[in-house]
Amino acid sequence: MTPLQLFCQQLANGLTLGAIYALIALGYTMIYGVIQLINFAHGELFMVGAYVALTLVLLSSAGPLPSGIPWWMTLLVCGLGSMAAAGMLGAAIERFAYRPIRHAPRLNALITAIGMSFFLQNALMLLYGATDRHFPNPIPLTRWEVGGVTVTLMQLVVWAASGLLMVGLQLLVMSTKLGMAMRATAQDLKACALLGIPVDRIIATTFVIGSAFAAMGGMLFGLHYGTINFHDGYLMGLKAFTAAVLGGIGNIPGAMVGGLVLGLLEGLGAGYLSSQWKNVFAFLILVVLLLFKPRGLLGERVADRA
């Protein structure tokens, strides 16, 4: 393996993790965009998505479905199922935990979010047990060598799923009426309400989309690493939050860029410096960047946020 091939391999590795970070970071940034709340329960919605996907995968491999169905069909069903479940849960959390205190001081909502995070984490522990769960992977172990760089089918699935979702989100936000309403709500909630935009419904929709994206991230995480644990959402949530801040919180393209950059930094940090300094390296870059660009990489485009 030449140094260049090694570098490209590490880029591919970093992009895989980065794509998952980006999916989770989008939810943080969208929710912050509309109601300026850092939803600390977001990491747990990611885990809910992973566990629902696990349940569906286990059902599909041992359940009533015929065994002849192709792996991508299984994944599609599991992905949509877990996105729907997490989306509904996200909307319910917004309706019953955050909406009643939307006009209270911002700290109240923040504490509520932390409490919600604890609640969901412990609920997952009670439902699925405290130990690591094996996540069976229906994707075949196919790999290709492109110029000395190995790419697996699993990595392609991660890139394709996250790429499609991100393009879809960009189209939704930029060129549909709902997206326009979301951008307007982000700019001025009160003025929107005065103009007859159903802000409650728009905010709920934002929670549904953000939670569904996190759920997809959770499923890909489970498939890629093969084990999940109820407390995995904590660190992944923290990393994705970092990615959102890195890209400029409240900015949708910023979350995508932030996620990919954080994944690449971790991958290259572990590959070239030392794996024991991996996390230190990633967070050090964040600190240095925020010193010089306090609004994050793309943070200055405040008008774009949604």
Partner: peptide
């Protein structure tokens, strides 16, 4: 000789380096 962090999940970059 390198260390990893307990609870970490992604060792692919490290193993890629070791492979080289």
């Amino acid at each position: 000789h390198e260390g990893i962090t307990q609870g970490d999940k992604d060792f692919v970059p490290l193993l890629t380096k070791i492979k080289s």
